[in-house]
Design a binder for these strands. Structure first.
Lengths: 179, 179
DNA sequence: TGCTCCATGTAACACGTTACATGATTGC
DNA sequence: GCAATCATGTAACGTGTTACATGGAGCA
């Protein structure tokens, strides 16, 4: 399972609460790994049981249940072991493309509005990634190996969003043409 | 659920057996929707029960159980209804990128070999898509709306594979650099 | 007081994966 | 005769989604 290993990696970068992890998965990690908060809490529970991670009550918890998780040596070892395994090629599941194919067969079905909505969503993500890029990878900062890897990963997300926008615009033009 | 609607679309293009559908999902549809044969058979069973599709023994079945599925009016109506719903933005789950991020934190872990393996796999897909493009969308063929939509979808797959190769090569260069 | 966000969780269910199994056909 | 491919299926399990639920904190 990769969710646990994505969480281990995130926790090695910065010990966090489940809620923080969920937000990071929504924002910066989300474009190459998605997870809901329910998945994350379930997985944190399992990992704590397996002694891959440990939790303490957060200093700023107050009367809340907020807990901070940190990676234990066993978790770090497990991550190293897992990295050595082969990765399956990513498989995609794009509902919008399924709808476009359906439109090609039984359409036109007015998918232009939906394409425009997706363009806006991609623009949002693009802007967010560009802000992260400016914040985390300023050009004057010393270039460590770690930074270069993470920067290239982020740049892939940026290229992905840019391309998604261009492609949707091309598709809009095709949908508008005569039969 | 989108698998059923992806299957309906495929069956509208061409009535087929479950096995044929599984192969199409592996080859041409696979880059935007993946499904195993077990998922497909299960889903075909459900759809037949719901009277979205019907099956007859294949003319070339011989002594095998081969059956050909066709879309019924109810299935076509359901597909039209579903296309009108909003599509969630595709979410990605890329294990290789998770491993690269882990490598950035606790590495180097020798992921170069794995990147090169992925480059070869992407090259295979790229070549397959280009062959499909030449076969299904020759430049002299009359350009219907349906063809233009399907061509643009395929071109996205081609661009995706090309970009994946370039990106992996950039990542290889980063991994080889000094800390 | 009520709204939004922070923070965590349970339960039920749907979907996806993996292992295993069967038998026919095709080509060497 | 053997292997690969065609063709379909069952069963068990793991993952992912959805609905529901609780309560504190901050702000208007």
């Amino acid at each position: 399972m990769s969710l646990s290993h994505a969480l281990l990696t995130s926790l090695l970068e910065k010990s966090s609460s489940g809620y923080d992890l969920a937000r990071r998965f929504d924002k910066s990690i989300g474009y190459f790994w998605h997870a809901t908060h329910q998945q994350i809490y379930r997985e944190l529970g399992r990992m704590e049981e397996a002694l891959w991670i440990a939790s303490v009550t957060a200093p700023d918890a107050g009367k809340t249940r907020k807990r901070i998780y940190s990676v234990l040596p066993l978790g770090r070892a497990e991550l190293g072991r897992w990295v050595g395994e082969a990765s399956p090629v990513m498989d995609l599941r794009d509902e919008l493309t399924v709808r476009l194919r359906a439109d090609a067969v039984i359409g036109p079905l007015g998918l232009g509005v939906e394409l425009e909505r997706h363009i806006l969503l991609h623009r949002d993500s693009l802007q967010r990634y560009r802000e992260i890029e400016q914040r985390d990878f300023p050009p004057d900062r010393p270039q460590t190996r770690r930074l270069r890897i993470n920067h290239l990963i982020l740049q892939r997300g940026i290229a992905y969003e840019e391309h998604s926008i261009l492609w949707a615009q091309q598709m809009l033009a095709v949908l508008d043409e005569e039969g």
